[in-house]
Design a protein around this nucleic acid. Structure first.
Lengths: 231, 231
DNA sequence: TAGATTGTTAATCGATTAACAATC
DNA sequence: TAGATTGTTAATCGATTAACAATC
């Protein structure tokens, strides 16, 4: 039986971890394509990503059938189909709010464009920044968010502002028609039904890592950052 | 994902999602302390974070007993104990490799210092950058990583270099005594037993968001970024 | 055909949540 | 004590993985 139907109707049954891995597969497939590899098996995927071969096949099964028993998967076909599933087979425009360091890093991140995610406009509320350039983007007044997005029609927004401003920015993004938000501010956002939020928390990542360290009860004394920087 | 496994099976049975939430609790408790709130219940935690009250209590139960039945939790005590569990009750020094845009954003991120994570040294392999300042940090030659960390003794390393260089940087960090790595490069790192890796992938986050958008089969035509930027 | 590898089922493993006795 | 809320157990829910018939 085909899972096509399942995928089309109850879209919300695909596990998030599966979607995260789909992005990993996509990246690997890009690399394989660049290396002129034409066919790949789930065993090979496991070797290259560490993701269990059965897991890989199960993940794909949420979206249909992709391979040939005894043969494997055609790299280019699989790549295309996954890109389509993730809706990045065409350019996916996004709005960025916050033209600080993080915003700058995101605009400059080459991996985004490679995978068809395009930062189409950049906003800030700081009048010292509005009108200036962030890379090749003019920084626009955040008050113009809705107006500008009438043309762009981006449905993804990125919040790279301080926590104190994040909720207001989220409200504006939603008002401008954004349906998905990537939030870098350490705040829990309240958004209406139908809007998806993903939070990226550096603190959270570091906390998990820090926990796994052995605990040395008494450290030798505070290291000095200056001592080092001044070397 | 492979590394996640390793870290889990190694010696700990605390679920990773629990640890991630611990960081969330910590942040909330900071806010509550600042607001002079002295006591909090699991029901209140649920209201503020959206995390189920039973989940919160279960999470804490991995580490001991923290509250008083009929009363709740003392904010300051809970804060201190969680900070200790996550080993950020004292300053936790870290090494940053990669002085590009992302590295710059991380050094400038105030949330880190607030939670006692300190970027103690910054490295790069680009001779045009070595010797210059990134904020108040002199950018050091990545070849000196091991030597410099003999003094700092950081056990957390952050990789903010292109994918092509990430594995080599990981090797060097491990050689320098680092036991936990936060990897921003879109690559799967191979590290020895006993070293934990967490991957942050913007692409992955965006892919999950993008998937959840409604699929408009035919879009009106490519929007133009320039059209917008040129406004 | 013989060998390889898929897609899917079933078993396992793990995480979340509801319920409640314990207790402040 | 009476009311509130904890810590923990048990039930539920969900995700991972091993196994294998189907099939190229």
């Amino acid at each position: 039986m085909t899972n096509r139907k399942k995928a089309e109707s109850g879209n919300h049954r695909v596990p998030i971890p599966t979607l995260e891995r789909m992005a990993t597969y996509l990246r690997l497939l890009s690399d394989l394509e660049a290396a002129k590899v034409h066919t790949v098996s789930s065993a090979e995927i496991e070797k290259q990503t560490g993701i269990n071969a059965a897991q890989f096949r199960k993940d794909l099964s949420y979206f249909g059938e992709f391979g040939k028993p005894g043969v494997g998967y055609r790299v280019s076909e699989l790549h295309q189909r996954i890109a389509r599933i993730l809706k990045i087979h065409r350019e996916q425009p996004m709005l960025l709010v916050g033209a600080g360091n993080l915003g700058s890093a995101l605009v400059g991140y080459p991996g985004l464009r490679e995978h068809k995610f395009i930062i189409a406009a950049v906003f800030d509320n700081n009048y010292a920044k509005i009108g200036r350039l962030l890379w090749d983007h003019e920084i626009l007044d955040v008050n113009r968010l809705k107006e500008v997005n009438e043309r762009i029609r981006a449905r993804i927004g990125i919040i790279a502002v301080p926590a104190s401003a994040a909720q207001e920015v989220a409200d504006r993004l939603v008002e401008a028609g954004v349906k998905a938000i990537l939030n870098f501010a350490p705040t829990i956002l309240r958004v209406p039904e139908g809007v998806t939020v993903r939070n990226v928390s550096f603190l959270q990542e570091l906390a998990v890592l820090s926990y796994h360290l052995e605990h040395e009860e008494e450290r030798a004394g505070a290291y000095s950052a200056h001592q080092i920087d001044g070397v």
